[in-house]
Amino acid sequence: MLNRVFTDQLQLGLGQSAAAALLAFAVVLLARGRKVHLEGEAAVALVRGLVQIIAVGSVLVVLLRGPRWTGAFLLGAMILAAGAISTKRAKGIPGSYLVSTYSIACGAGSVIAIMTWLGVIDTAITSLIPVGSMLIANAMNTNGLVLNRFHSDVLAHVGEIETALALGASPRQSIAPYIQTSFETSLIPAIDSLRSLGIVWIPGLMAGMLLSGSRPIYAAIYQFVVLTMIFAASGLTSLVSTMLIRKHVFTSADQLLLRPGFSHKLSE
């Protein structure tokens, strides 16, 4: 329908964005009917997403002709941004920006580095950037999930945690159950996408590869490769994140800092 109205591809893209946004808006209205207010955050996220992707798309057009190191530079910038974004999901956890950025850099960065070195990810910017950014984005989501879950679990179990400390447990022991559930929860999306690969969804990358003339079976196998890398990057991110965050919620005298209505700054 839209492709008959718009003959120019850029216009078509904008028309398609408007259609998708309308649908999203309808969902927001539905949520509003149930007293869930998403409109503010959703509107900002939609506009922001559109502007960002157009900007990055334009930059990519230029960079794609540039030297290969620009790919690494771009991925580095993405990691910093991902750290900042997932920090927002961990409000109230002291030091969460550093923890997030470091975890994503370790999780996604090391998988990208190893896989590029092995030749699993091609160094051409056209493949390094899409695959790399997918790994970073998933590492970011995992990190957001793990911190969010950890934050709410700790706040809901302050009594148990302090009881454990009062019985002589180390900080590590006292929060071990919550670290474990946070870790497991954060990996559900990565595991579920692997499990449902090809049945519930066929990632966009495969469509792209098919369009650009890869052998279908190779394109299919590569989807598995990508999702497995996502799983590895997510798992590593979550591991690093839970390891680092532990140090930030206790003082050096093994006192729990993360307590309801308690500002961590005051107790330093």
């Binding site: 009594g159 148990e160 009881t163 454990a164 400390l165 019985l167 002589g168 005298a253 093994d254």
Partner: peptide
């Protein structure tokens, strides 16, 4: 008590709170 490792201090100085927070 700042010279005593916290876990050791808390072993010697036990605590019982208003609500019993038992572990699963």
């Amino acid at each position: 008590y700042r010279q005593i490792p916290p876990c050791e201090l808390r072993r010697k100085v036990g605590m019982v709170t208003q609500r019993a927070f038992l572990f699963p």
